[in-house]
Nucleic acid binder design. Structure first.
Lengths: 392, 392
DNA sequence: CATGTTATGTTCTCACCGAGAACATAAAAT
DNA sequence: ATTTTATGTTCTCGGTGAGAACATAACATG
């Protein structure tokens, strides 16, 4: 968490007060693990039933949520369930993999529905395809679009995807007029956000998430949000020299953690040339062979797992997370070598931290993590005072 | 910064609204570089002059600030200056060095006044001395105490100061009944907070601060606050293996950045045995000899500076700071070898970051950084809705 | 020195808010 | 059929900040 945090304390009038409470209510409804009732939301927010009635009434009149009779449960007057309004705001989210894309829709409450998908030719032309799909599936209720990509986006504009060979791709050239308000985010960061909102890291004040594919990247999560940094490209933990490698990384630096963790590291162990997004099947094969006990494959996986653990320990010293979650190959490495990962992590922890190392967990959101994260970050726009003021 | 941050959205009533605006006003007065007038604070907070008058009137009646006529400046009715109330809340701050301590008082507006100091015998008995000094200087207006110490405090209770040989010192044994509300913080973190509030990092959304003494430690600063972590011990960046060392650190880990940066690294270069808080004078001597051009001293300082730069680059990849500030020996290293630090930093940056590396600045708060930070974090308690509700 | 201009302070009215109490209602339990 | 329970609705109250109008205190001008 951030101590002595000084949130930008905004001007607040009575009207602002109202909107503040409406946002709280919508956020509670959106984040609830199961639909909330009006009576429950009044208790949850510690407001009067009259106030809850007023807020819910205004939000329903504005088409932002809908009340339906709840099934009566025990004595007492039945209450109502708060559900998405059929004319309520939705957001779209796209996940761009190295040769395919998926488009989904999210509404209040978090239900995610895949609406389209396709292949692409590994060039930035994929943005035109996404645009076409968005146009096809957009309704007047569309509020924002979130897009997950496999690399950093500097200043929200300059996209790098190493294994596609994309360097300083100008998003302004590919996404201008005609696009809904769009947020593009790194897939590891969005996967982490998904775990923080609806997965293994829910409720954690300070957490780290790492996604392992060809290499490793992640995000520092604070109070349910990602640390984004000055240019919106924080999270490149894989490009820190945490494991003593002497090799030069394709990012331009020597000794990156990513050289020792992930698919490329497994390939290099077997003398293969890593690069350009190839090797995922080979990695799966190595993992399977290691699971069967084949010595060389086991050695490769051992090295990967130990390097993973050492890096996690170093980062735990610096950032002091309550929990760390993993996705992608990270889940496989944990399942095969949890003991090794944790032991390597411990040896990288300062002596006095070893009594209580951070919890290391498999991500639970699954392969849709980046898509889920993109959806949540797009829908976040709806859950703000500014958006509500414009809408009401 | 933290995107999609979800501040705990608190219950808000009309009375809460009032307190919210009172906190905003006090915060504005406290943080202003020079005293604010009532008219200026109304403009700054975008509130009506009637509302400003009401808020200021209530705060003065509560003894929290004081209005004095401002010198007339040009046409127009003269306004008033908002200054600390002589009966207003103050906080005390202590900085514990390895053989001495300093106590200071802070009031609204940030004026820091040293009120006492002394030597100590390098044992936790220093807390009893601090307590005696606090009792001597406390008035009924004392609200909180901040203490800066040279090591991490796990879970706010277990203190480690490596160079004093303190291991798992239980603060609950030394600070219980009879103490004002107390916050103990790591000196590097508090120095960073001081730079964020009143120094080189003022206004930076995401920043890093490092203090270099015997070794190196720091803090990630987000929106004017420090990232504290799950157990309140984030910031041990010095205990990450960023520079390829093979040595074992006294923290229990192999290869820490602290082995290559700071006084101990200079001592090791000359074959001296580092440890237990000795060597500061030796380090100053080496720096002076390097400044005069002596080859071996120059080599030692070059290595220190290069290691500093490499670590900064690695951390910049991961955390994406807008600026990095340094204190202690960090200032000396910058003055002697800024080019080398920046060049080493650049080579540790991913290729696409090199066009715009983070600004590296000398801290401007100076040696009172930890004391200033402790004072600010103690006074933060006053600038909260909860504290004001109890007080009004 | 009187008058005009400017910037701020004060007063007043308005419309907004949520809380809490009292009462009404709709269910299940007896 | 009546009682109990939980929630919904209505009402009143006291809080808030905004904006306008007017008052005041300074300096500038003629």
């Amino acid at each position: 968490m951030v101590a002595a945090i000084m949130p930008p304390m905004t001007t607040m009038t009575s009207a602002d007060l109202r909107v503040h409470n409406q946002v709280r209510l919508l956020r509670a409804v959106h984040d609830a693990a199961e639909p909330l009732t009006r009576a429950a939301v009044a208790r949850r927010l510690d407001i009067g039933r009259n106030t809850a009635a007023a807020l819910v009434g205004e939000l329903e009149e504005a088409g932002l949520l809908h009340e339906v009779p709840a099934e009566a449960m025990g004595r007492g007057r039945p209450t109502t369930l708060l559900v998405p309004h059929e004319a309520g705001p939705v957001a779209l989210a796209a996940d761009i993999r190295e040769d395919s894309w998926t488009l989904a829709r999210i509404a209040l409450g978090g239900e995610l529905t895949v609406v389209d998908s396709g292949d692409h030719d590994r060039t930035p032309a994929v943005f035109a395809q996404i645009k076409a799909a968005v146009d096809q599936h957009a309704t007047k209720h569309l509020t924002a679009l979130g897009i997950a990509v496999a690399g950093p986006i500097r200043d929200g504009r300059w996209l790098h995807i190493a294994h596609l060979g994309w360097n300083e791709v100008d998003l302004d050239e590919h996404m201008g007029a005609g696009w809904p308000p769009t947020k593009v985010g790194n897939d590891a960061r969005l996967a982490g956000l998904a775990e923080a909102r609806r997965g293994a890291l829910r409720g954690a004040g300070t957490a780290l998430h790492f996604h392992i594919d060809f290499d490793i990247g992640g995000t520092l999560l604070l109070g349910g949000g990602s640390q984004t940094g000055a240019h919106n490209i924080a999270g490149e933990f894989g490009h820190m020299p945490l494991t003593g490698s002497r090799l030069r990384c394709m990012c331009g630096v020597q000794g990156c953690w990513s050289l020792d963790v992930g698919t490329y590291a497994l390939m290099r162990h077997f003398g293969k040339e890593p690069g350009y997004g190839a090797g995922r099947e080979f990695a799966r094969e190595v993992l399977a062979r290691a699971a069967r006990g084949e010595p060389e494959a086991a050695r490769a996986v051992d090295e990967n797992a130990a390097a993973l653990g050492r890096g996690l320990g170093a980062l735990a010293n610096a950032l002091d997370p309550e929990a760390i979650s993993l996705s992608g190959l990270g889940i496989d490495l944990l399942r095969l070598r949890r003991g090794l990962v944790e032991q390597a992590c411990r040896s990288g922890l300062m002596e006095f931290r070893r009594g209580e190392p951070p919890r290391i967990a498999e991500g639970t959101v699954g392969e849709i993590g980046p898509l889920r994260g993109a959806a949540e970050i797009a829908f976040d726009a709806v859950l703000t005072s500014d958006w509500l003021k414009r809408r009401l």
